[in-house]
Design a protein around this nucleic acid. Structure first.
Lengths: 325, 325
DNA sequence: CTGAAAGCGCTTACAG
DNA sequence: CTGAAAGCGCTTACAG
């Protein structure tokens, strides 16, 4: 089955390849009758332009690298899969394909992306997370490759980014609880090395301050980012009889809640991320919707804007929503 | 920053572009000294071959489409993400990239794949699931596109496939329980419209027959593929006081177990898939490891074999393993 | 072992 | 509005 080329179409329609090209790409004015004839030939012959030939002259391939840091957890994590889903949906609107990249090591990731860019295999990059001293970000910004990061990049001027306002999100949760008369609160977060943990803790403190409540370091707990670890460390938190326990993640909250239930102890606890787990009837808790759908969508929009030459917009903050129940 | 081309390298090394090409592609004999000089120039200039130019003449682009049926659940589902992870790992060994395709509608999926194939954007296809009357499979087989499917395709001769032996897997579970003296068993599965449910039920029946136990339709229950639905429908199963309840999925098993726990009722129940949930200390249950890592790995190997011209191997059955605990 | 030349399938100034 | 021609950056018979 010989592939049909632009020449075949041209011959069949009785025009030149240039004309066919113009019809297909909708560039330049072509007579209505000619256009019709060309389309008819394309349909008849089943012509699909060779993307590689096109890219060779265009230097654009309509493909975006989507980079997932492959920590053991990342892909199993609903956050990543939700964002990926949203990115995929939005990219399809722009008719871009996804080249999916996993990388455990930041150096390897940088080299990989460098290669893909220089081999003309991608037009842009969406990175699902950022880290400190991110080499990929450095490469991308130095070489002015269109790229966007989901999360809070160290140097905001370097690269497009989209993120929640995590400080404000937590501020809102805590303010809400205080308004309900809960004044003895504690904060349970993941590792403080994640910027997101720090941002949320900062929101916690601000809400207390704003409402004239004292803050003490003893109100802050850090656990591993897992339900199991939260469960194991729950006792010391539960025993303090806080009015409310606010957590930076649903799984953390659910781990603590499970421990409390085991001990037949009633607690008030809030999560974060609006995960499926937080919405199961048997263990439904208040949580914060971080709008992964919007995070993904805006990542794509910022990137597409940049590819189209827009240099005015550099980031987008996605509003969260406290789901109190 | 002008892109460096093969000509630049040739000039710098004092050879012809043909020679550089041969060195890079390792085709044809080139003198050791020349080779060294060319490599040195490549390194110095930072040359990366333009993939689109190469593909234009090669008709191969080192990219594989990985197709995910985008049902609402698919991406959140650990099964899909695990398989995807394994495919990614194995493909990277062959230095192939992943073009990630989601598609909700089978017709759209077919058209999408057709386009990518004809535009020379992919060399092969891995599909994470198959359905009845799968149009994508028809297109791929009719046009002899290298492709592999994970699951049980209707017409086994049409396309490469890899799957578990689900009947035997369940046979093994049930036999094992019977050996332990449990004779009053029931089967709880997802919808019977999935081939996998039918295969596992068949294994259940065979194990009973083999051991001279009677089978009655009343021993078979079907629930939606979710923990919630299993929980809701658990009472009628629990009340029968079976020696053991075998389920086709961990979440189903855990839903029933949770209900039993709520009622302070002891049951013996087994799951399927060896999911994280089935291994949590608080609710650990026997389960079957379906080896998603091997499913993904073999999908890639079969595909690569076919791309390299091997037409002898057509499928692979991945052994499961009962994890009794 | 190496080079000159043709060709892969497009696009796009240039000319009309 | 349309075509002839050059060129994108490679690879690969062909010839030596």
């Amino acid at each position: 089955m010989k592939k049909v080329t632009i020449k075949d179409v041209a011959k069949h329609a009785g025009v030149s390849p240039s004309t066919v090209s113009r019809v297909v790409s909708k560039k330049g004015k072509i007579g209505a009758k000619t256009t019709d004839r060309v389309y008819e030939s394309i349909r008849l012959l089943g012509y699909v332009p060779n993307y590689n030939a096109r890219s060779l002259v265009n230097n654009s391939i309509d493909t975006i690298a989507v980079v997932v840091d492959r920590s053991p957890k990342s892909l199993d994590n609903a956050y990543f899969s939700d964002v990926l889903k949203s990115i995929a949906t939005e990219l399809s609107i722009y008719e871009k394909e996804i080249l999916l990249i996993f990388s455990e090591m930041n150096v390897d990731e940088r080299d990989k992306i460098k290669n893909l860019v220089e081999a003309n295999r991608i037009d842009g990059v969406i990175k699902l997370s950022v880290m400190k001293d991110d080499l990929t970000v450095d490469y991308l910004s130095e070489n002015q490759i269109p790229a966007v990061v989901i999360g809070n990049p160290e140097n905001k001027g370097k690269i497009l980014w989209v993120d929640n306002d995590n400080e404000h999100a937590m501020y809102e949760v805590v303010t809400n609880l205080i308004d309900d008369g809960k004044t003895n609160l504690c904060f349970v977060g993941g590792s403080p090395k994640f910027i997101v943990t720090r941002d949320r803790l900062s929101g916690f403190k601000k809400a207390l301050a704003k409402n004239g409540l004292d803050f003490n370091e003893s109100q802050v707990y850090h656990v591993d980012f897992s339900e199991e670890d939260a469960y194991r460390n729950a006792d010391k938190i539960i025993n303090e009889n806080y009015d409310a326990i606010v957590c930076t993640d649903d799984l953390i909250a659910l781990g603590i809640l499970r421990r409390a239930t085991d001990k037949d102890k009633k607690i008030y606890i809030t999560g974060f991320n609006n995960s499926r787990e937080a919405n199961r009837s048997s263990s439904s808790i208040p949580t914060v919707d971080i709008r992964t759908d919007k995070l993904g969508k805006w990542a794509v929009r910022l990137l597409m804007g940049r590819i189209d030459g827009d240099v005015t917009v550099t980031n987008k903050i996605v509003k969260t929503k406290f789901i109190k129940k």
